[in-house]
């Protein structure tokens, strides 16, 4: 009994640093945001905060820009997840097979992940420049008219999808690679004896055994996709015609340019609930698949 108590105490002591930091930087700010969402907190009058209950929430549902930003992020998520995860899996399969020069390719595909998103965005801004950019020059050489990319309301978000997928895929590739290398060789040998072809090998052996890795990757990619802000901030400033305005970017603008912390907090709460629901549905769906 006494020993158990002592062990418990030790456990709490070991947990304390993590708990204190999590509480200070995660739980406390989240609770504050929920509190502020019911107030009229204006950044310049921090000593004059009044409770306004649901006023912010009612205004948000009438705010065309916020609603547009929700539609935009839905489009982004729906496009970026298959592209980014698919690219990551493809790269991982290629590297897994290729034993020689393996490290070179790993570094090459992983390097965009290490670079700052701002740097990546600025680089692509130059590559995608309608008149001088490399991409349009290549297109021109193969006989395709120059594309407006970021300055077109219909192409801007799709362009950001590709840039983001290109930047992020290296990270998921590494996780997939680890997953692939965890698949025991005996399974493939057994398959060989049964005479499976390449496609069957991938579909009936690799894919099912990668499932736990895939679920992890899907959920983490989904959550980080929802947080899109840097690319539109640097590349399009949310334009053209709000086509690339995202909820997090709009929250940032409302809070820090417009100084409306209360309103921004309320959007954060709503958006947090949206992400929570989507993640919940996703983990349900993947668990049902299991059964």
């Amino acid at each position: 009994m006494n020993i158990k108590k002592k062990e418990n105490l030790a456990a709490y002591i070991f947990l304390a640093p993590a708990l204190i930091l999590l509480g200070l930087f995660l739980v406390y700010p989240s609770l504050l945001a929920i509190y502020y969402s019911f107030t009229d907190y204006y950044l310049l009058t921090p000593n004059d905060i009044n409770i306004v209950w649901l006023e912010n929430f009612i205004a948000i549902f009438k705010d065309p820009v916020f609603i547009q930003s929700l539609k935009n992020i839905a489009l982004f998520v729906v496009l970026v997840i298959p592209i980014q995860v698919g690219a990551a899996l493809g790269l991982a399969l290629l590297i897994n097979k290729q034993r020689k020069g393996n490290i070179f390719f790993k570094v090459a595909f992983f390097s965009p992940v290490v670079l700052s998103l701002v740097v990546i965005s600025v680089l692509w801004l130059y590559l995608l420049n309608p008149s001088e950019g490399l991409i349009n020059n290549i297109l021109l050489n193969v006989g395709i008219d120059p594309q407006p990319f970021l300055s077109s309301p219909t192409q801007a978000m799709v362009t950001i999808v590709f840039v983001s997928a290109w930047q992020g895929a290296g990270y998921q590739m590494l996780i997939f690679l680890a997953g692939l290398q965890n698949i025991p060789g005996e399974v493939y040998e057994a398959g060989k004896i049964d005479g499976v072809n390449k496609w069957q090998k991938f579909y009936y052996i690799t894919l099912p055994l990668l499932k736990p890795t895939s679920i992890l990757i899907m959920i983490t990619t989904l959550i980080s996709a929802f947080k899109l802000i840097i690319q539109p901030m640097v590349m399009t400033q949310g334009g053209p015609m709000n086509a690339t305005m995202t909820p997090v970017y709009y929250i940032y603008q409302s809070g820090f340019s417009d100084r409306m912390i209360g309103y921004a907090s309320a959007m954060t709460v709503i958006f947090g609930i949206v992400i929570g629901i989507v993640t919940l549905i996703q983990s349900r769906v993947s668990r049902e698949d299991d059964n």
Partner: peptide
């Protein structure tokens, strides 16, 4: 200002 900027841009 931001809405006006959007108006010009649009």
């Amino acid at each position: 200002s931001r809405i006006f900027q959007d108006t010009i841009s649009d």
